Computed example of a mutant assay.
Amino acid sequence: MTIYNEKLGAGFLETDGMRIEEGLYTAPLLHFQADLPDRDYTITLTSPASANVQEMELTVNGVEIQPTWVLEQQEWTCLFPFALVGTALHLHVEGSPAVLSTVEVTPIHERQRSTYPALFLIGDSTVCTYEKERAPMAGWGQMIGRFFQETIHIENPAMGGRSTRSAYREGRLNALLTDIKPGDYILIQFAHNDETPTKLDRYVTVDQYKTYLRDHYIRGVLQRQGIPVCVTSMNRRTFDKGAGTFIDSFPAYTNAMREIAEEQGLVLIDLNKKSLAYYNELGYEGTAAIFMQLKPGESPNYPDGLDDNTHFKKAGAQKMARFVAEEINKKIPALAPFIKEMDKPDSY
C-alpha cells in the first residue's frame, strides 16, 4: 500500500493524525481510494493483532460494512464483496485509532446467466415478507410467488422502514447487486419512508430520490446486465372526506418514479394508480378489510387491535401482488410465459 497518487490510481489519502510506521497506517480516520470501473470486487483488509478491530467502523462509498474479522497468525483479516457503481471506490475506516496493514481490491468473476431469470424485489414494509408472529400482516412480495411457476426463483430482501437512502446505506442494495445475474429482473419500489422528513435517516427530497434511483439502483442493475423495473408505491388509506374519494398519498414521489422510468426507458408498474382505483371501488369502509384494521381480540397477534392505514392484511397484499403480476404479464414478454393462476380468484 502507498499514499494515493493519480498515476497508480490507488492508495491512502492523507487525513488528520495519520501515521505510517513499520508498514501500518494509523489514524482516527483512514481513507483509501481506488480508481476502478463499475463491477463487483472482493475487498480484503488486514490489521495487526493488537488493533481493536471490533470497534472500527467501515464504510465503502457511504455503504455501512459489517465485517467478520478473523484472527490468524497474529493478524486480523476480513473480506467482503462490494458492488462498485459509478464512481471511484472510497473506503473509510474510523477507530480509536483505525489501523490497517493492507488493503486488497480484487475483481469478482462475472456471473453467468441462468437458464431462467430470477425475480428480485427491493423496497419497504409493503413489499417485505413477514414472520407468522405478525400475521395477518403481509407484503405483496410475500404473495407474488403464487403467480409464478416454480422455475422462476424469487428473492425478496425488502425490509420495513427502508427508503432509497437507508436501503443503500445499510448495504441492502449492495447485497442484491452482488447476487444478481445477467437477465435477472429487479423490481424497485420505494416512497413510503422516503417522504418522511421527521426521520432523517430515511428522508430524501424528490430530487435525491430520483438520484438514488438513477445513479445507484438502476445504474447498478444495468451494469450487471440485470433488468430494473420501476414500481410506484401503492397508496396508504388516504381518503379525502370532502371529495369522497381516495387520493395519492405521496404524489411527488409517485410522479418522480414515473419520470425516472420514462427517462431511463424502463418498464413501469404503476401500482399507485392500480391501488387508487381499487380503493375507490371498495369505498372507505370496504378498505378496512384489506388494511390492518383490527378490533381488540380479533387477532391473537394483536390482542389490543390495530389501527394501521399503511400495511395490508393477506387479502390486500395478495391483491397488490395480483396487480403486479398482471402488469408483468402485459409488459414483460420474457416473464409472461411463467405467469400462472391469473384466472383463479384470490383466496384468503
Rank of each mutant, 00 (worst) to 15 (best):
A88C: 09
A118P: 00
G161I: 10
R162N: 12
I186Y: 01
C128W: 11
Q189K: 11
Q189Y: 08
A135D: 10
C128T: 13
H92C: 14
F148H: 04
I180R: 01
Q149W: 10
A158N: 06
A135Q: 05
Q189C: 13
T129F: 06
T126S: 10
E94P: 05
R134M: 07
I186P: 01
C78I: 00
E104Q: 14
T178K: 05
L173F: 08
D184K: 03
A138V: 00
R165P: 02
V99M: 07
L187S: 08
L173N: 09
P117Q: 01
E150Y: 12
S163A: 13
K132Q: 15
G160F: 05
G145H: 04
V103Q: 03
I188P: 00
T151Q: 13
M137G: 03
A135R: 04
H90S: 12
Y116R: 02
N174F: 12
H90E: 11
E110A: 14
M159S: 14
P182V: 06
R162K: 14
H153Y: 07
E170V: 09
E133S: 15
T77N: 03
S96P: 07
T77W: 01
E170Y: 07
H92A: 15
E155C: 03
T115K: 13
L79F: 15
I152L: 03
R172E: 11
C78F: 00
A98C: 12
A83Y: 11
T129P: 05
R162T: 12
L119V: 04
E133W: 12
R165K: 15
T102H: 07
R162F: 11
S96V: 10
A138L: 00
H92F: 15
F120C: 01
M143N: 11
V105T: 01
P81I: 05
Q142Y: 02
H109M: 11
G86P: 05
I180W: 02
L177I: 13
R146V: 07
R146F: 14
G139H: 00
G161E: 09
R113Q: 12
L177N: 11
R169G: 14
L89A: 02
A88D: 14
H192E: 10
A138G: 00
L176P: 00
L119S: 03
A191D: 15
R169V: 15
S166F: 07
K132Y: 13
D179R: 08
T178C: 15
E110M: 09
R113P: 03
R146Q: 12
P157G: 02
P117F: 00
A191Y: 11
P107E: 04
K132N: 15
I108W: 05
R111D: 08
W76D: 00
S101G: 09
D124K: 13
Y185H: 12
T129K: 12
L187A: 10
P157W: 03
L121N: 02
C128I: 11
I122R: 02
L100Q: 07
P107W: 01
L177H: 11
A118D: 05
N156K: 00
G145C: 06
E94K: 12
P97M: 02
E170Q: 14
A167M: 14
T164Q: 09
G95Q: 05
V103S: 03
V105P: 01
V93M: 11
G139V: 01
F120Y: 06
R113H: 02
F82A: 06
P97A: 04
T77A: 02
H109A: 15
T164G: 09
R162L: 13
